[in-house]
Design a protein around this nucleic acid. Structure first.
Length: 670
RNA sequence: GCCUCCUUAGCUCAGUCGGCAGAGCGUUUCCAUGGUAAGGAAAAGGUCGUGGGUUCGAUUCCCACAGGAGGCUCCA
């Protein structure tokens, strides 16, 4: 038989014998490629390496160092996890186990224990499972693909109800697929099991997979967690085991180091270490108190924001923390979000008649009342009302997390009331304002997300939503930023653009949100008198730039790993006298710096200089100034900057000029 | 809210197979007065998260609650 022709990714053609597999092709190209090969892309479809090639196929070999290769590696490791669990827990059943970012998971259900509740994995179980997985890997079990009729699959998986649901097409499984009465499976034949007369492991799966288990092994089981079957809280909770897997031990170790590094900059940890804030148990879950240093950073963040808002045409308002229920009835919050609000406070008068009050979950109803306090003219629009407004939301107990998901927090909230015609331009300038401001705080890597009409819990007509969404889309497209769609992610009253920012270690955070709202003006019946003398309904834009001051504080804290830039640092300068007799000089310098608006403090010489410097460094203070005999004599300081080189004999005036220049540059001297 | 794990000094953590607890760092005091990331000594500091139960006796075992971590669901 004549050779067949295969096209390679570089465009070259290669002649191989008929029946050559993708793996054999890799070997023919080179041993190193064959060793690194995981799967193959044949005419755009991912295939196992044992896939036989046909004449004219376009083939590229996918290796473990590529995203698709890693994905396959993790997926195959998930199968090994499932096999290990079924080996060790014979009455366990398994559900789905896809690869995820950096790793994989698999969901299981264990038989009920003596108390009748489904069993759970313990940390010890994870170790046993890990050991068993390594045995399976050592066995070099092949991954064998098959397609079998549904009915045969139902027999094989008769004891596994979740698999039966998948076969029946009731449940989506991102890694297995059923079509036209056939089910795709992967089996891991095992000589050891065969010798004992046991059936080998088989799973529903679309594949592809690595050729055999020996290609795996650089993994670590991370944790066990509960997860609802099919992501539905009304369905049974399964036991999910998470793992991470990599192509090499080096990659695995590097990943574990990255996790440690991220843990080090966790704002909850830094908050304690740097004495910034705390969550006293006596106050309640999700309710923070800010200590003096954290309070200073907050004040600086807020002051700068206020200044920028004042320059940009915002007016400052204030509103109370609680309100009678009627207000939230009018706004719609009680209809849609009563569950997320703190329970009501009921005040009885002497007749037993009372008023019901709620803690406010949002500021917009109050701002809208301010708008409605008198008749508005079109000449006043856009009217921009800003408030650092404290809001309270009853977050479910399992979701509270440090400052990023709190029950009480402060929004840098503003509502812009304008005519429908003004909205596009207002939104465009708003987006510029948002991005500029975030850049001033040190974030500069953004993308935008457009959240559209939710399926449920929604007010307003589809036409209104479409119109509002289109306005936002046009504004978003006008920026040179990536735009990601978030279908159904809007609030009940309107679509939103959110600004997503990537921090110093590449994590993304949802930052500012800008929402267009046609509903609230209608619910509150607000109007303006147009140039035609007639009454018109304004539109409303909700926007928060930090989102929440507390959350933004946490994001900056993690972004800077606690080392706030000088303009935000709670202590900018620490002065240290070499000996006690330099203290008076150091104290005079501190007084001068403080008088000039800097934040400086002196520590006396009760410890050796080296140790005092060490403490200042651990506190991440931007500048340590050391003064000794030479400095007292010449009016100079020794400057030890955070992350820089020590400089002796700097004139005080020089240092002050440099410090001021640095701070002015950071905030663009606006 | 659901699942797993956790809660011992200000912080990080030992420990008690049930007999009222320990280290390092930090704090205070004393000595030491030193030129750029840990000088020495001493002392203070704990109802072992809270409340029940079992027990002669509970920080330890059991239950509930609170708080925390990681997930799931949720996030106006």
């Amino acid at each position: 038989m004549a050779d067949i022709t295969i096209t390679l990714p570089d465009g070259s053609a290669r002649q191989v014998a008929p029946g050559t597999t993708a793996g054999e092709l890799a070997a023919a190209i080179g041993q190193r490629l064959a060793d690194a090969a995981v799967i193959a892309d044949v005419n755009g479809v991912e295939r196992d390496l044992v896939w036989p090639l046909s004449d004219g196929d376009a083939v590229s070999i996918i290796t473990a160092d590529s995203p698709r290769g890693l994905y396959t590696l993790r997926h195959s490791t998930a199968h090994v996890l499932a096999q290990a669990v079924l080996d060790l827990f014979p009455r366990a059943t398994f559900a789905i186990g896809p690869p995820i970012e950096d790793g994989f998971y698999y969901d299981f259900q264990l038989p009920p224990g003596p108390d009748g509740k489904p069993g759970t994995f313990t940390p010890d179980d994870l170790e046993r499972i890990d050991v068993r997985m390594r045995e399976i890997i050592k066995e070099r079990q092949p991954f064998v693909r098959d397609e079998i009729p549904d009915d045969d699959a139902r027999k094989i998986f008769a004891d596994h109800p979740f698999k039966l649901e998948i076969i029946d097409g009731e449940a989506d499984d991102p890694t297995s697929a059923t079509e036209a009465g056939l089910v795709r499976t992967y089996e891991n034949p095992s000589e050891a099991k065969g010798a004992r007369g046991e059936a080998s492991f088989i799973d529903l799966c679309r594949g592809p997979h690595v050729p055999h288990t020996k290609r795996l092994g650089h993994f670590k089981l991370m944790r066990v967690a509960g997860a609802y079957w099919r992501g539905d809280e009304h369905k049974p909770m399964l036991q999910r085991i998470y793992g991470t897997a990599w192509a090499t031990k080096k990659d695995l170790d590097a990943h574990l180091v990255r996790l440690e590094e991220a843990a080090k900059r966790d704002h909850r940890k830094l908050g304690v270490e740097l004495d910034l804030f705390s969550f006293p148990e006596e106050v309640g879950s999700g309710l923070a108190v800010f200590h003096p240093k954290g309070g200073t950073v907050r004040r600086l963040m807020e002051d700068y924001s206020r200044m920028r808002h004042a320059e940009s045409g915002y007016e400052f308002v204030n509103s109370p923390h609680i309100s009678k229920a009627d207000l939230f009835q009018t706004s719609g919050h009680l209809d849609w979000y009563a569950d997320g609000m703190y329970p009501p406070m009921t005040l009885d008068d002497e007749h037993g008649e009372g008023a019901t009050y709620y803690l406010k979950p949002m500021n917009c109803p109050f701002h809208t009342l301010i708008y409605r306090s008198r008749l508005r003219s079109y000449r006043e629009l856009p009217l921009r009302l800003f408030e650092f407004g404290a809001v309270y939301r009853y977050e479910k107990s399992g979701v509270v997390q440090g400052l990023t998901r709190a029950r009480g927090f402060t929004q840098d909230d503003a509502h812009i009331y304008c005519t429908k015609e003004q909205a596009p331009e207002e939104l465009a300038s708003l987006l510029n304002f948002v991005l500029d401001l975030l850049r001033d705080y040190g974030l500069d890597d953004f993308y935008l997300e457009l959240s559209t009409r939710p399926e449920e819990k929604v007010v307003g007509s589809v036409e209104e939503w479409d119109e509002a969404t289109e306005v936002l889309r046009q504004v978003a497209l006008s920026k040179e930023l990536e735009l990601v769609m978030d279908p159904g992610g809007g609030a009940f009253y309107g679509p939103k653009i959110s600004v997503q920012a990537r921090d110093a270690i590449g994590r993304t955070w949802q930052m500012s949100t800008i929402q267009l709202d046609f509903q609230t003006p209608r619910r509150f019946g607000i109007e303006y008198v147009g140039s035609d003398g007639a009454r018109h309904e304004p539109v409303m834009i909700h926007r928060a730039l930090f989102g929440s001051v507390e959350r933004f504080f946490a994001i900056l804290l993690e972004h800077y790993a606690g080392a706030f830039p000088t303009w935000l640092a709670p202590v900018q300068v620490r002065l240290l006298g070499v000996r006690d007799d330099h203290h008076a000089y150091a104290a005079r310098l501190a007084d001068r710096l403080n008088a000039e608006g800097f934040r400086a403090e002196v520590i006396d010489a009760s410890e050796k200089l080296g140790n005092r410097i060490r403490r200042a460094k651990l506190e991440k203070i931007p500048y340590v100034l050391v003064v000794g005999d030479d400095d007292v004599e010449h009016g100079t300081v020794g400057v030890n900057p955070r992350g820089g080189e020590v400089e002796r004999g700097v004139a005080i005036d020089d240092f002050i000029v440099r410090l001021r220049a640095e701070i002015d540059a950071a905030t663009a001297a606006r």
